[in-house]
């Protein structure tokens, strides 16, 4: 087996060895099961009965975003100390004293956390998908595809945290990553809102996107695009290809920077 795959598998096993991983997964699943009640009640707005399928659909969309946002926190926590922990407990020497290249070690660790985080998020989204299916009989098409698309954002969070953790204390690296993701949500979210018909009617002035906003990591836009796979609404923010290419380029750049920094460091 290739060393990269071997290290990814070892990373997944090591993370799943921790009881806190199962505790977190159990809490998340229980939380999702608790909102099951939302799918069963009768809702009326202004005296008009709302279809349960419609309610289920809206709740599922909300929970989709909630899970995706929560996963940013989890992936940052998982990836913030991976190199420093390995350095302290001897795992780094264990790998690199064998015929393992440094790039295989770094990318193997990153890939392991990414696969695990994606699986974690997918399980939570799948739970919602199945709850809707069993309670309403309706299938939310695109829900699971959207989940997989959001995993690209998770990879961005992991690579960015790993990169920052080579310069900053672990906790600060996680906070900075969450900060950058937060800025992406605020700036692109606000821009997206400004494009709505309602706001445009209120604010008549031309609203051009600043260059920094165009170049800033498009975490929000990618997640928003993923949600349009569920809603089947058009994605009017910008080209979805640009959002994806933007994030992939950032992932590539930060991964290259992690490798460059790691190759120059002493073990």
């Amino acid at each position: 087996m290739n060393n990269l795959i071997r290290i990814s598998v070892i990373t997944i096993k090591d993370q799943m060895r921790q009881k806190s991983f199962y505790l977190l997964l159990a809490i998340a699943v229980v939380f999702i099961l608790l909102i099951r009640g939302c799918y069963q009640g009768n809702y009326s707005v202004n005296g008009r009965q709302i279809e349960s399928v419609s309610v289920a659909w809206h709740v599922s969309l909300l929970v989709f975003h909630f899970i995706a946002a929560g996963m940013f926190l989890m992936t940052s926590m998982l990836s913030m100390g991976i190199f420093s922990r390995d350095r302290d407990d001897g795992a780094m020497v264990m790998f690199l004293s064998r015929s393992v290249d440094r790039w295989q070690y770094v990318l193997g660790r990153i890939a392991g956390i990414w696969i695990l985080s994606t699986a974690f998020m997918f399980i939570l989204h799948l739970t919602i998908f199945l709850i809707v299916l069993t309670n309403t009989g309706g299938m939310i098409t695109g829900y699971l595809t959207a989940s997989l698309l959001c995993s690209v954002n998770l990879l961005f969070a992991i690579v960015l945290t790993c990169f920052l953790s080579l310069f900053l204390p672990n906790f600060m690296a996680a906070i900075f990553t969450l900060g950058i993701i937060g800025i992406s949500f605020l700036s692109d979210g606000a821009y997206q809102a400004m494009q709505s018909e309602l706001i445009r009617q209120i604010i008549s002035s031309e609203n051009h996107a600043a260059l920094w906003r165009i170049l800033f990591p498009k975490v929000y836009m990618l997640q928003h695009y993923a949600s349009t796979l569920i809603t089947n609404n058009g994605f009017d923010g910008m080209s979805p290809t640009y959002a994806l290419v933007n994030i992939v380029l950032y992932i590539g750049a930060f991964a290259a920077a992690v490798l460059w920094r790691f190759y120059r460091s002493e073990i």
Binding site: D89, G90, S97
Partner: peptide, 12 residues
């Protein structure tokens, strides 16, 4: 084959 001076094994 290498044995480090302050050899450590991941505690888990």
């Amino acid at each position: 084959g290498y044995l480090a001076e302050l050899h450590r094994i991941p505690p888990y």
